[in-house]
Structure formats: structure tokens, C-alpha cells
Design a protein around this nucleic acid. Sequence first.
DNA 1: AGACCTAACGCAAACGTTTTCGTGTTAAAA
DNA 2: TTTTAACACGAAAACGTTTGCGTTAGGTCT
Lengths: 349, 349
Amino acid sequence: MKRKITLKQIAKELDVSISTVSKALRNSVEISEDTKQKVQAFAKLYNYRPNNIALSLKNRKTNTIGIIIPEIVHHFFSKVISGVETVANNRGYNVIVGLSNESFSKEVINMEMLANGSIDGFILSISKETLQQQDYHHFNETMSQGMPIVMFDRVIADIKCDKVIVDDYKGSKNAVEKLITNGCKSIALITTKDYVSVGKLRTQGYLEALHEHKMTPKAELILKIDDTLDYEVHLDALELEIEQLFKSNKKIDGVFAVNELYALSAMKVARKLGLDIPNDIQVIGFTDGVLSKHATPSLTTVSQHAQQMGETAANLLIDKLENEFDDEKEEEFQTVVIATELIERESTK
Amino acid sequence: MKRKITLKQIAKELDVSISTVSKALRNSVEISEDTKQKVQAFAKLYNYRPNNIALSLKNRKTNTIGIIIPEIVHHFFSKVISGVETVANNRGYNVIVGLSNESFSKEVINMEMLANGSIDGFILSISKETLQQQDYHHFNETMSQGMPIVMFDRVIADIKCDKVIVDDYKGSKNAVEKLITNGCKSIALITTKDYVSVGKLRTQGYLEALHEHKMTPKAELILKIDDTLDYEVHLDALELEIEQLFKSNKKIDGVFAVNELYALSAMKVARKLGLDIPNDIQVIGFTDGVLSKHATPSLTTVSQHAQQMGETAANLLIDKLENEFDDEKEEEFQTVVIATELIERESTK
DNA sequence: AGACCTAACGCAAACGTTTTCGTGTTAAAA
DNA sequence: TTTTAACACGAAAACGTTTGCGTTAGGTCT
């Protein structure tokens, strides 16, 4: 078990100084051709690679970016990571992941762990608990220490940093308009409580679409799910709520759901009630998930282009990291909006 | 934009030496109560945290583990990461992810990037391309440098390292036996080409189950898919193959598929051919996926307990990292087998 | 021959820690 | 009063790099 070889060991073996070895390997003109050859050959033989940690310490730059997400077992988030990773690797960075599990304290702890030198900047999506408590001190503290943050999807307007979001409002509006165009007269909305910003925006899009088409929104058609429960395990509870919605509003002929699971549950309930999709009732969901594609009938959804979001976020962050020229010239932050796309499948006409 | 405060700065402000500050913060008996109080108060005020990189360099230990997986947008792998992350965090480690994208060269590059000091050890699942080429030099080189590796799921017998696997053989055998018990007389197998070890083992389980029940396996009932194609995009090709299988073997009343997608496609094709599930034909898949649960009908599957695999792998690795006492006493490697579990849903009787 | 240049290399500092080993001061013991 | 020991602290090395600058040797010029 031979440890990795260091400059010092090479220097000793070749009977030169450490600096000579270093310079020789970097092809410095200060070093004679002879010595360079000798050193480089030796280094190659022993497969020398500079120690990253030492470099990080010296350069005060780790070439690593941290990504903090609420959960990883989720198609959207893992796709974002994939995007981040691709760009990061291409630009010479590593990616270190932290999971908040939708918990405020885990988010804080994770950020503190990474902020102590391990990484150069953050890419993150805020946990639900943090959004509820509206305690954002850890973001501000991190940034005040000169560590840039790029937020994606779940963001907060008050915080000054780069952001990558999807146009939830427009995406939803388009989806609902599609339902209207397709002849739906009574469109239900299945959404989350308002503290999740994306849920709120998608609700607004729904309302606006109705409004523009002179349809009056009805409160009884809007189902706000309390998503603090984990509906992956309490599926039946969710379905029960939806069933009641359907039963007390028999004229419903269209459903817009703010995520995949709600939409799938709606389809399941509809089928159970003997409704045909898409003839009796049409359904559209919001997400990039794998369920939509493989459901029966397959689900029409609003795609968020998660991969692209990750790529964009990574590029924004690395750009900022590598443009240190901006000393004192009033830092600028951008918000990139990723266009949504309506992917039509079998759940709509 | 104030940089993070260092020991040196504290020392300067308080007019003591760096060592005094360090000792005071670590509550050394060498330092007077007075000084400790002063230093600790100051450190707290300025929110001092030791620089991780400096610590890593000094201790030659990064407290970070690297995980390399073929792809992250995959329920199984993201669940494994989740398990790794949980254990790692609890035991004071960070997790840095590398994606091989099933490519040999990306696997090698990623490992080289991380092996230069960034991490203390690897957790990985081998890429398909590597399995095909059977080139494992990067694993051996990494380990010969004293960096431990824990492999999971896709492993190779020849390589001496800790492993966490699922009993693919027994899991498959159980699944097929379930079909037999449920009355299936003609059971088809949808699997991958043999170079993916798990595909091979699952095929063997299928054969053994038939054998034990005096059923003779028929070659025409075994469909080996060439999974170098990405069937997430070429779904129709996959379905076509399955359709031909069904059409040329009309007596098929049971299907065992080695993964979720194959199983779902089989169900889809069956439905298309007017077969009722589970009455005309029963289907079992192999995986932990989210599709199985939400499909209609929901799919009976062999669960791999991915989360548990991740947790086990992380514990194995960290145990090894923290037991350096084993100098020269013939390192021992263990292979932990995670029990599979048959989760019965609607696709079987 | 003296002054000067240049090639080729080494020294040392720096990054931020921790820790071993001094060292100076003071109070207690002789 | 002198010796000793406890106490409180600082200097320096070490982890592995990179780099500015100093140094040496030899050669060139006048």
C-alpha cells in the first residue's frame, strides 16, 4: 500500500529541490531541458498527480460546487443534479451534494458543513420548512462571506442572488388554456398550500387562464392539498380527497394538477368513478417525471426542463466564480427563466 | 464581503499567538481560563469555523466519500445515494458524486479526479461499458494507493474489496416460484444480455425455479434485450420485441422481467393484445422503482432495498476508514447480501 | 582583469490548521 | 536566598503546493 507520491519524494529521489520539481513539471523556462526530462519521466513513471487539497488550500479555491436539494429520490431534482454535474465536470469542477430532506435545520447544518472551505459556491432549492418559517439568515450569511449562491425552482424574491426558475405562471396558464381550448367547461385545480411559491404561482396561472376566457373560478373546484404529509405513503388519503372533489362536482371535465402525483391520483380516481380519459375528463400535470410518460393513459404535462435548469444554474455559478474582476462594481444578479413546454399525451384530446 | 475569519486574524486582534488561539478553542489545559474565555467569546462573535481544507491537508483525511454511479436519474441509484448520504452525514462525512453515464472513460476520469486527495474512499457501481470491456485497472490502482472501495449492485468477483449486493438469484427464483404457485404454466423471461452480472444472475434464478418445479425452460420464452440502446427513448422498439414474443407464444400466462421498464412494457403490450392482468397473464418485475407502485395495474416487484444498500455500503466504507489498526494483518473484505422482498401488488393473483 | 549578464537552481513564504517542544514567569519548597 | 515546579504561552514544524526572489556558477564583454 504505497501512498500517493508527492513533490517532496520526487525531489528527494532525484536529489533536487521541491521547487525545481514543481517548476519542471509545469515546464518552467527556469529549468534546464535535461532536468525537465528527468523529472517528468520520473513523475510519469510514478503516476504523480498534484494533491487537490493542497492546491485548494494554496489557491483558496476548491473547484467544487455544493448542491443542496430537498430530496434526491425525485425525478426533477435528480435531473437537475445531472445537469449541474455535466456542466461542472466539463468546466473542471466537482459536485458535492447535501440533502435537506425538506428540513430547515438539516439545510442549515449542511450549508455550514460545506461553507467552511469545502466548496466555492452553492446551487440550491429551498426546503419546504424553510419556506414556511421564512428564516433565510443562512443564505444571507453565506453570501456575506463571499460565497455565491444560485437558487433554482424554489426561490425567494427578497434574496439577492442568481436564480433559475421556470415560468410557473405562464406554464400553468398555457396548460389550462389548452384544457379550455379542448372544450372543458368545468376545470378543477389540485394544488398545494400557498407557502410553496411554485404552488402559488401555478394557482395564479390557472386563475388567469379562466379569467381571460371569461370563466369564473369557483372555490369548490380548487383543492389545496396539505403536502406536509408524505403522500407517497399516504396515497389513499390523497385519493379520498380527490374523490370527494369529483363526487361533489359532477360536472368537472378537466383537471389541472400542480404535480405528477396529484394528476395520476386524479386519473386513478376518475377511472374508479367510471369516467373515461380523455373523453369524459381531461387531465394535465406539471413536472418532468417518469410517471407521466408511462402512466395509462399517459399524462399530458408541463415540462420544466430540469436538466436544462441544472445546466443553467451551474453555468451561472461558475461564471460568477471565475469573474472576480467585479470588485466593487455593484454586483449584478440575474434571474433566468426556463421556458416550459406542454407535452401532449393521451390524457388530453 | 468579509472573508471567513481565521485563527491568524483572531490571534492578531487579541494579541496572542496562533497556537494559543487554537488551544483555547479546543479547551486545552495549557491555556488560562481568562484567555480561553476571551478567545472563545471572540470566536463566537465572529462565527469562527475551522477551515475544512486546512484540516484535510493536515490530517490527510478529508471526511468526504466519493460515490460513482452510472446515472443519477434512476430511482434505484438515487435511493442508494440517499442511503449513503444519511449514514455519511450522521458519521460526519460529506458525499461527492460522480456520474459515469455508463461510460468507461468517464468512470476512469471521475475516479482520477477524486482520488487525488479529494476523498477518503469510494462507493461505486460499475458502468456497463466497463463491465463489457472488463478493464478494471482503475479500481486496482486506486486501491493499491490505499484508498478503499465499496462496490454495490454491479460488482466483480475477481476484485478484492467490500461489496454490497442483492441476492439477485434468490430474489428472481422466489418471484418465478410465486408465478408458478399462482398457477402459471408458461412463464416468459424478459432480461438483458449476459454481461450485466445482475441480468445474468436473475436469469439463473428464473431457470432454477423452473427446474425445481420440473418445468422445462424454453428458449423461445426467453427474451434477451440489448440494453445498449436507451429504451427510455426507444420505447416502441422494446414494445415491438415484446409483442412478437407474446404473439408467437400465445400460451404465455406469466412474465418475469428483470427490471421495471420491461415489466411495464409487457403489461402495456398485454393490455393491447386484449389480455387481462392478472387473470390472463401475471407479471412480476425487479426493482425499487416508483413506476411499479403507480402503474395500473400496480406491479408486483422484487424490492432491492436500495436505501439499505446505500446505508450498508456507507457503513462498510467508514468502518474501514476509521479502523486503521489493521496494519499488515491481511486485510479482510466482506460481501454483504441484502435480502430481497417480494412486494405483491395487482399484477399477480 | 574587472564588470556584468544569464542560465539553472534553491530558499522561503504562503494557504490555515494542530501539536510538540521549548521558554519565561511566578509562586512554593528547601 | 536559591532551587524547583507549575503555569501560561509562543515558536516552529508539518500537511503538499506554487512562486517571487536570491544565489551560484560560468561565460561574455570591454
